[in-house]
Design a protein around this nucleic acid. Structure first.
Lengths: 68, 68
DNA sequence: ATGTAGACTCTAGTCGACA
DNA sequence: ATGTCGACTAGAGTCTACA
């Protein structure tokens, strides 16, 4: 169980369900586009402030990203 | 709403309920004792791998730390 | 629109010491 | 047993460029 991969999968799933591009998500969350790409591919160990930003950008509570 | 403070408060509350010292938690989670202190005081922006380690050390699911 | 690579800055996380 | 300080190394997060 790799938490980075699990989290990245969640972000991708929720983003796709809302038909948002990585580029748009990056803009909404005020993060770099290439960083969103890395996150979704399980390559980055993001901080809780980043998790918080992405959760707000996708209008979801933080817990949504940690229900496995 | 500061996510660092909210998370730190959760860690402290759950740890105290289990009668575990910061020192013991640090040992269980394989983290530095002074870092646990900083986290509980809302001073550090921890990564999800660290959240994961602390959750496991306290035998709680990750979501427990993000229910506000 | 996405993945990756490289170079960069700032901070996460460690550690020793003292209150 | 906890808080804080200072110095350190590893890695978070940015940005440009190319496929």
């Amino acid at each position: 169980m790799d938490i980075k991969v699990a989290y990245g999968d969640k972000v991708k799933a929720i983003r796709k369900k809302q038909n948002v591009s990585q580029e748009k998500l990056a803009e909404l969350a005020d993060l770099d586009r290439t960083y969103i790409s890395d996150i979704e591919n399980g390559k980055r160990n993001v901080s809780i402030e980043t998790v918080f930003k992405i959760a707000n950008a996708l209008d979801k509570p933080m817990v949504s990203f940690f229900e496995f």
